[in-house]
Design a protein around this nucleic acid. Structure first.
Length: 290
DNA sequence: CGTGCCCCCTGTCAGC
DNA sequence: TGCTGACAGGGGGCAC
């Protein structure tokens, strides 16, 4: 489900309640969601302090005072929900892992008589494609190094992207979905970035050079920044840590818009399927199937 | 080694 | 109303 902008939005919503908090309880309702041995997962989290909430690609990362990191990948339907005490909303439908937390900052916008908050962090996932893993510092470093550059970082340049594109003949959409090439891009923003770059999603990656690579770099960063500003794209499952919908679904240019007019030229948007996934594009602005 | 395909699982919706 | 099939934002494993 979530791509970089959705993960970033969740991270921002968790920073206040979780930073400086302590995990006081670990409840594992769906053991298949935990990667690795259950006892070490449980013991590694219990009584640990949370120092920072960050992100790597599409993954939400809680850095603990033990040096370990809890890495949460939401798969297609995962949610990571902060439920302050006392809970205002009904409990979510498919809880998989619940962390009891004490001592963070009060939930933003929620009046509180005490300077600290207590609540639960619920990982909810009907389809159970998501995974939670607890990584020691060396394992974290190894895992992080398998992911490509962060597309919104200053080190992600058009020149670096162009060089990486030359390494494969596979379709541009496949390149963008490959987390080893660029971290955090999924199916929605891959289509959106190809559109902004004026490149057909099937274009062989190594045929994208020069101006094309610069347009792709610019379009990718633009759409990811816009989507972060909009709080992510809610098509069905995605919610923020507070359970709210994003708003970027109203700003999608081509994704999910088969038959609707292209925002540039009004030609009907087309949908094609390859690698078992849909890609949306404007046949006029993005050329024909190469 | 790189690449593409299948599958993991549940929920929803269109069409009959 | 109820059944069936298509489809869904991800990613690991495997065959080629």
């Amino acid at each position: 489900m979530p791509e970089l902008p959705e993960a970033e939005t969740i991270v921002r919503g968790l920073a206040s309640p979780l930073s400086g908090a302590r995990i006081t309880g670990v409840r594992i309702l769906r053991p298949d969601l935990v990667d690795g041995p259950l006892p070490s997962f449980r013991q590694g989290l219990h009584r640990a302090g949370i120092e920072e909430v960050t992100r790597r690609g599409k993954n939400i990362v809680l850095r603990l005072d033990t040096g370990a990191r809890l890495v949460v990948n939401l798969g297609m339907s995962g949610r990571l929900l902060w439920r302050p005490e006392p809970p205002g909303d009904p409990p979510p439908s498919h809880p998989g892992v619940i962390l009891d937390v004490e001592g963070g900052n009060p939930a933003a916008g929620v009046p509180s008589s005490s300077p600290c908050s207590a609540g639960t962090l619920v990982y909810n996932d009907p389809r159970r494609f998501g995974r939670l893993r607890l990584l020691a510092p060396d394992a974290w470093a190894r895992w992080s190094s398998t992911l490509g550059p962060e597309p919104l970082s200053s080190t992600f340049t058009a020149a670096a992207l162009e060089e990486s594109l030359q390494g494969t003949r596979s379709p541009l959409r496949s390149f963008l979905l490959d987390q080893r090439k660029v971290a955090g891009v999924g199916n929605i923003y891959a289509s959106e970035a190809c559109f902004l770059a004026g490149l057909h999603p099937r274009t062989p990656s190594n045929k994208v050079h020069g101006q094309g690579a610069r347009r792709l770099h610019r379009g990718l960063r633009r759409v990811l920044r816009e989507a972060v500003e909009g709080g992510g794209t809610t098509l069905r499952d995605y919610r923020t840590a507070q359970g709210w919908e994003g708003s970027h679904q109203h700003r999608l240019r081509v994704y999910g818009r088969e038959g609707r007019p292209c925002p540039h030229c009004s030609a009907p948007i087309e949908r094609i399927v390859f690698s078992n996934r849909s890609a949306y594009f404007c046949p006029r602005c993005q050329g024909t199937n190469p």
